[in-house]
């Protein structure tokens, strides 16, 4: 990257390090950090949407809908999330291909599952066999995002369901007394008030979500864990200009520090938001704030 990097063998110390850390391959790990942030940026709202749908379903007066919502919430509590990740990545892929297969090749006779293979017609393959590399990568990333959203949606549903129940009954009764129907009560009274009850749970969830991002590695995305293993491994002089012994330990230490910094910053920001939201609320924390100010 820098002009003086042309012959790394002659360099040493920090200069060598500055060249080493800016090689083309190292750019990939910095991009991978971007992938993680992108995943968080997309997953957080998506999971919140899934969670909102799940929590609303669990509160529904319609029994089947309520069962679906409650099962969705309950299932993730009993089962490790990693199992869900590994499951959904294959299951979603097969589900998409199956649906496309049914639409695109209606006269296909053979069974879809042949022994240990999952066979769909070539027009239904996702992504298509002749698609460029970036389509494959984007599709893989899309599957990962969807998986994260489904799993964390269930956690979010749990939080929001609790928050909806925490809104004081009196508020809802007042809304009824004003002649609002169920839908109006829900959207105008319940939803605006539930956030302050949901925020502790949601900020906890955000932390869990940050800490779950390295699991992208298990879903086959070339993320920071992948690159840390790749770049950290021992490099022989005949294959690279920057030979070094096994440095994976240091790469993972760097990742550890990165995540610590990330969660610390999140914690500080979330505390500020919480302080803003509790301001003037009729909760214990709001009361404390009022007393401290007075």
């Amino acid at each position: 990257m820098f002009g003086y990097c042309e012959d790394p063998a002659t360099l040493d110390g920090l200069v060598w390090l500055s060249c080493y850390l800016t090689t083309g391959k190292h750019m990939s790990i910095y991009w991978a950090v971007g992938t993680v942030l992108l995943l968080l940026a997309i997953t957080a709202p998506a999971a919140l949407a899934f969670g909102f749908a799940g929590a609303s379903a669990a509160r529904s007066t319609l029994a089947p809908l309520r069962w679906i919502g409650k099962t969705y919430i309950a299932v993730v509590r009993g089962i490790p999330d990693i199992a869900f990740f590994l499951f959904f990545v294959i299951a979603l892929d097969q589900a998409f291909e199956y649906v496309r297969h049914k639409i695109k090749c209606p006269d296909w006779q053979e069974p879809i599952r042949q022994g240990n293979d999952f066979v769909v017609c070539s027009a239904a393959k996702l992504p298509l066999g002749n698609a460029p590399q970036w389509v494959h990568e984007t599709y893989g990333f899309f599957l990962a995002v969807l998986t994260f959203a489904i799993v964390f949606g269930a956690f979010a549903a749990n939080v929001l369901f609790g928050a909806m129940r925490a809104v004081p009954k009196g508020q809802l009764e007042t809304a009824e007394a004003y002649g609002m129907n169920r839908r109006q009560t829900f959207w105008r009274v319940l939803v605006p008030q539930m956030w302050v009850y949901a925020l502790p749970g949601l900020s906890n969830l955000w932390m869990v979500l940050i800490k779950a991002t390295p699991l992208l590695f298990l879903l086959g995305v070339e993320d920071i864990v992948y690159w840390a293993r790749e770049l950290g491994g021992a490099k022989q002089p005949q294959f690279t200009d920057y030979p070094h012994p096994d440095w994976r330990m240091w790469y993972f230490l760097a990742l550890l520090v990165f995540y610590l910094a990330f969660t610390k910053v999140s914690e500080v920001v979330l505390d500020r938001i919480m302080a803003k939201l509790t301001h003037g609320q009729a909760t214990a924390a709001g009361e404390r704030q009022r007393k401290a100010a007075a």
Binding site: T213, L256, Y259
Partner: peptide, 9 residues
């Protein structure tokens, strides 16, 4: 920090 990274480290 993530448990996953702790294991690796």
């Amino acid at each position: 920090s993530p448990l996953f990274i702790q294991f690796f480290f």
